[in-house]
Structure formats: C-alpha cells, structure tokens
C-alpha cells in the first residue's frame, strides 16, 4: 500500500498509543466479579464492540488488559492491545493519523486506531467522551457490521483486520452533563457495567495486589465501603479499589496503617475540610 511508517516520531510517542504485545501467560491478575469474562469473550468472538462503564479505579483498564491477553490464545484472537487515553484535545486526526513533515518529505503516519484496525488489535479508547466530537464519526463505521475505517485525508477506506475489536470506556459519574455519550454511539456497544467489587472480593484483590495480609486487606476494604457511603453527602466519587491498593502497598512498605490510609485515601479523595476530618475519624476507628 506504499505506507511508510516512521517509528521515531517524538510527537506520536508523547501522546501516542500504548501498545501491548499479548501472551496469555502474562495476563495481569483480574478477579471476576460476575460474568464479565464470559460476556467479553462472547462479544469478542462475535466481534461486537464493548463499552465498559464504571467509576474510576474499579478495574476497567485492568479487565481489558486481562481479557486481551487471555483472548490472544484464540486462533483468531487479537494480536495487540492498543490503549489510547482520551482527552479534550484528542481529535480525529490523532486517532486516524496525519501527514508529517520529516526532513525533505511528507509522510503519512498511522494513528493508533488505524494501527489497531490494520494489525488486528483490540483498541481501547479510555474515557472516550472526553475526546472531541469528530472522533465519534470514526467510531461509528467501525462499531457496526461494516467494520471499516475511512481515512479521509488519504481517500482510503480500510477494512478492519479480523482480530480487531473496539472497546471504549466511560465513567458516567464525573463527566459533566454536556459530555454524555450520545445514544447513536452508545447503542452500538455491548455494555458491561463495573462497580466497586463486593467486600469479600475487594479483600482478595487488595491482598493480592498490595501483597498485604488478609487482615489488613479486610480493614482497607471496610474503609472503602464506609467511605463510599459518603458519596451521598457530597463526595464526588467513592474511593477506588486502586487507592485502597495503594494504601495497602504503603503499609507493605512499612508505613503505619493510619498514616497510609490518610495519605492514600483521605487526602487523595477530597480537599473539603469537614470531609477530610470525617474520613480521618473513620480511618482512626478502623485502624487501631
């Protein structure tokens, strides 16, 4: 096709995709909460795009990584995982690619989405609503039966590689109302909803990830559960499993539990004086 791929473009590296080469043996730890593994596998086999919905730090990205590695063992499984963290200035060109001037020539550089489509990767667009509206134009033909990606600037339309799958994520909690996912977009996806794991699973996850004793993991999970109650009284987001794991890791490094919980949970969650004090009182109540 005469495509010249320049590998050392600094700009693309700065904001570019994160490519993971897959190996089922290297799949990161993921503890299934419900039937999400089965659903995702089925969706992949049917090549149905997937929307992962849930609050921050509840395991969406980890889940995609885990699944991509697992599915790569299928004969027609994905070849890579390409993750793009979407932000407000992310345009269609950032995803599809653009012409760049390099020395004396103008070269086309594939964007992450194009790379995924060509190479049969799972393309994970994290927090997709953050991206500019023109990106949805690209997503639509890829996420229905057509599975094509039109590249307007090159006058080219590429058909997706058999291994390709589009996965997007979205956090309904903290996005402003203006940034809701449009129905024309969301109704193209199979949706898997994530919440914070139930207490017993969360204990297991914290214990595994942070390497702490069951007892500490339990206390951290209780702290998580209690702090999440505060969401009704003004906290924007409940404490993520990720933060609880951080606290666990600090404890594992020898930081006193109360202190670890304060720096990893209380201060990360809120700046509001009353909430901070209240969360700290809960920390003191839970950790002796």
């Amino acid at each position: 096709m005469g495509i010249e791929l320049k590998k050392f473009d600094t700009r693309l590296q700065a904001e570019g995709p994160e490519v993971r080469h897959l190996d089922p043996a290297a799949a990161p730890f993921y503890l299934p909460i419900g039937d999400e593994v089965e659903i995702f596998t089925a969706a992949y086999k049917a090549r149905l795009p997937v929307l992962l919905k849930g609050p921050t730090g509840c395991g969406k990205t980890r889940f995609v990584e885990h699944m991509a590695h697992q599915l790569s063992s299928l004969p027609d499984g994905p070849n890579e995982l390409i993750t793009v963290a979407c932000h407000e200035d992310l345009t269609g060109s950032d995803l599809v690619g653009r012409f760049l001037i390099q020395a004396d020539e103008t070269v086309w550089v594939d964007g992450p989405l194009t790379q995924a489509v060509r190479r049969g990767a799972i393309c994970y667009l994290d927090e997709v609503v953050e991206a500019r509206k023109d990106t949805t134009v690209l997503i639509h033909p890829l996420s229905d039966h057509r599975r094509i990606l039109p590249i307007e600037k090159r006058g080219e339309t590429i058909e997706a590689h058999n291994g390709f799958l589009l996965v997007i994520s979205y956090n309904p909690g903290y996005q402003s109302i203006q940034k809701n996912l449009k129905h024309s977009t969301r109704q193209r996806f199979v949706t898997i909803e994530f919440t914070y794991p139930p207490a017993d699973k969360e204990v297991e996850i914290i214990a595994h990830e942070a390497g702490v004793e069951q007892d500490i993991a339990l206390q951290l999970a209780v702290l998580g559960e209690k702090v999440r109650h505060l969401k009704a009284s003004g906290l924007e987001e409940g404490v993520s499993t990720r933060l609880l794991i951080y606290a666990g890791e600090l404890i594992q490094q020898g930081i006193a539990p109360r202190r670890a919980a304060t720096v990893a949970v209380t201060w990360s969650l809120t700046d509001e004086a009353d909430s901070k004090r209240a969360i700290d009182e809960v920390v003191k109540a839970i950790f002796p």
């Binding site: 009704a232 009353d274 209240a278 969360i279 009182e281 809960v282």
Partner: peptide, 8 residues
C-alpha cells in the same frame, strides 16, 4: 464532621 463520620 460528625454527621459525615456517622453516615460513613
């Protein structure tokens, strides 16, 4: 603070 503590 108390109210939030209790609700948690």
């Amino acid at each position: 603070v108390l109210t939030k503590f209790m609700r948690m």
